[in-house]
């Protein structure tokens, strides 16, 4: 009788331990999954802020860069494309276009001393540059979150629960080729 009670006691302990362990693995998987969504949403918050700053920047530049209509139009177009993008890969592509257009604008602005001295322009340039850096940091964070998730769902015993939950590896944020290339800068001086 004593042996049976002892055996049942140990069995109960093992079962409780096992259940707690499985619950903690399940919770972990949910946590790492939510982390990815949260880190993506955090990138979008900053992208939205940068997106809102662009019309102000274009407005300031318009007065000075009369002969750079093409550059300014490229930014407006890239901004519109960014607004229309829905999936992460589309957003990444549109974002690369926008970042490239902004780089060109800031490079071309070097040629306009009056614009460069304009306080609003300096403020907007700093703000956009700061936002770009923040976005880059958050993308790095997003990739770290994805890396953790992709590792966890392949580890034993989490892999069994991940299969039940139908979790598949997530795609990392890859910098499109366009963003790796330096922007082409053309100076169009009036004849």
């Amino acid at each position: 009788m004593g042996i049976i009670i002892l055996f049942l006691g140990i069995l109960l302990l093992v079962v409780i331990g096992l259940v707690l362990y499985l619950v903690s693995i399940y919770n972990q998987l949910i946590h790492v999954r939510v982390n990815i969504d949260k880190s993506w949403a955090n990138i979008e918050v900053l992208e939205k802020q940068r997106y809102d700053e662009i019309p102000k920047l274009v407005k300031v530049c318009e007065g000075y860069m009369k002969y750079e209509r093409e550059t300014l139009e490229k930014i407006t177009l890239a901004r519109t494309r960014f607004l229309e993008a829905k999936t992460p890969s589309e957003i990444a592509r549109a974002d690369a276009g926008l970042a490239g257009a902004l780089k060109t604008l800031f490079a071309v602005a070097e040629n306009y001393p009056e614009l460069k001295a304009n306080e609003n322009f300096i403020q907007l340039q700093n703000r956009i540059s700061y936002l770009e850096n923040q976005i880059a940091d958050r993308r790095e964070f997003y990739n770290d979150s994805v890396a953790i998730f992709n590792t966890r769902i392949k580890q034993i015993p989490a892999v069994f629960i991940a299969n039940i939950l139908k979790y598949t590896p997530k795609e990392m944020f890859k910098v499109p080729e366009v963003e790796k290339v330096s922007p082409e800068i053309k100076f169009e001086f009036p004849k």
Binding site: N35, I135, D137
Partner: peptide, 18 residues
């Protein structure tokens, strides 16, 4: 749980901390 939580959270840069 604490051990796993530490392992599962990537390190943020202070500039971009959410």
């Amino acid at each position: 749980r604490k051990k796993r939580l530490i392992e599962n959270i990537p390190t943020s840069k202070i500039r971009a901390v959410a």
